[in-house]
Amino acid sequence: MKSNHILNLVLLTTLLFSCEKNENTEEVTNLIEAKRAEVAPDKRVALWDLNFENDSLKGETDQLEALQELIKEIEAQQIKFTDAVLRLPDAALGEKTKALVTISVANIRSNPKHSAELATQALMGTPLTVLKKDDGWYLVQTPDGYLSWVDRAGIHLMTEEELAHWFREPKVVFTALTGYVWKDENESEMVSDLVAGDILTVQDETKDKLKISLPDGREGWIAAREAQDWESWIASRSTTPEALITTAKQMMGTPYLWGGTSIKGVDCSGFTKTVFYLNGQIIPRDASQQINEGELVDADKDWSKLQVGDLLFFGVKGTEEKKERVVHVGMWIGNGEFIHSRGLVRISSFDPENPNYDEYELGRYLRTKRIVNVPSEHVLSVSSLLTNN
């Protein structure tokens, strides 16, 4: 009888402890999710991978201020726990928490392996924030906030001070659609290929050549006519109808590439992002992010309201059971036409009499937004790219 009593007591204690533990887990999980909704509703641009298990707060995040707020909220509930959260940038990186893209176009993937989905791209000279390392891959954040993985071979790791020094060096922007860096002025050996928008530092110049340095220290020569110094390039950027149309049409025929944001290949939102970048603005990466910017122009297929540069969005309309799905974007170029990347960069029209009539896109049209000359939280000036923030 005595042993049964002891056994029952142990079982009761275990049950009470388990109930308390479960209650703590549920309460902390609710706090985690509430904070996620506040600071990281879009996991593409904010990392908040936290969980509470066995009285331990685990996971990783780059939202350090929010993490401290969460910890205070847990402590206020008098819940004892172990803090096992990895704070990013990872301390294992040391001071090398910055990087520059060192190849013409860096492929940035959803996971740390070459077979992973291509999430986005970054051009040579683009500054990145480095968050952690996984073998030969680095989790980085691009200037538009996108979080993805890049191969070590495509970047040059730097400290804050080294990046600040690079910012101060004289620079040029490569303006031809494609080109090369040559080892010598005779163009006998290629150092690297280039695409429009790549950023290089200048070491010397002749009448028609520039001696430049790539972000990883490699040097070579380019034709002076194919580049423009950074300050004058920035000053000449404009989202006028003429500038947007010219840039967009220069990319006609560029092949569709999921995750692409360069002349080598673009997806639909990568195309609009590239057009605006080459004209001085950094806009969000994906169509489902771009649709949240600017002001609403049309949702009723009244094309008379549209202006050159307006972004048209397509997808599946929402219902009571399902959320709206934004899957495609194009840019209005006037005269009843828009330009977009589907298979290749092409021009389409909603006019049945136009040879470019696109019944397919007309059928899944959602609405049009305007970001040209409209203040928007996540639309930035390219001039902010080379500031030491």
Rank of each mutant, 00 (worst) to 15 (best):
V105M: 02
L100A: 03
P89A: 02
C19D: 05
T142Q: 07
T14S: 14
L11F: 06
C19M: 12
A66N: 14
R87E: 15
T120R: 05
D49P: 03
G94Q: 04
T126W: 02
T13E: 05
G145N: 11
V130W: 04
K113D: 15
L47E: 11
D135K: 12
P143Y: 07
K58V: 13
V45K: 10
I79P: 00
V85T: 09
Q77E: 13
K132D: 09
K133V: 09
A92C: 03
D55H: 10
M124Y: 04
L50Y: 11
Q68N: 15
K113Q: 08
S148L: 04
E60N: 10
I74P: 00
L118M: 04
L118Q: 02
E75R: 11
L12W: 01
G94K: 04
V28S: 06
G59I: 07
N111Y: 04
L67M: 13
Q68S: 15
E73Y: 00
G59N: 07
L118F: 05
T142H: 00
T61Y: 01
T129S: 15
Q78M: 05
A37C: 08
W137V: 12
L93Q: 06
D134G: 01
A37M: 06
V39N: 03
R36A: 13
L118R: 01
L50W: 10
E20R: 06
E75F: 02
K43F: 02
A122D: 11
D83L: 02
K35I: 14
I74G: 00
L67K: 06
N22V: 04
F52L: 13
E27T: 04
D90Y: 02
A66Q: 12
V140G: 08
L147E: 06
T102A: 13
Q141A: 11
N107L: 06
N30R: 05
N22C: 05
Y146Q: 14
I74L: 05
P112Q: 00
D134L: 03
S56N: 11
E38A: 09
R109F: 04
I32H: 03
V85G: 10
P89F: 00
L12I: 07
E95Q: 13
A84V: 01
T126S: 12
A66M: 09
A106K: 00
D135Y: 04
E23L: 12
I103M: 05
D134I: 04
G59A: 07
G145R: 06
A116G: 12
T29S: 15
K43H: 12
A106R: 01
H114C: 03
S115F: 01
Q77A: 14
K80T: 14
E23V: 11
L31H: 03
L139A: 08
A99Q: 07
P127L: 02
N22A: 06
T129Y: 01
V140N: 08
A66G: 15
T61R: 03
F52W: 05
A76I: 05
A46W: 02
A119E: 13
A37H: 03
T29D: 14
W48L: 11
L64Q: 15
D134A: 12
L12D: 07
R44D: 15
Q63I: 10
I79K: 01
L57M: 13
F17Y: 04
L128F: 06
E38P: 02
T97R: 01
L64H: 10
R87I: 01
F81C: 09
T97I: 04
N24G: 03
A91C: 00
A106Q: 03
N30V: 09
G125T: 09
K132T: 14
K58A: 09
L16Q: 08
P41E: 08
L128V: 10
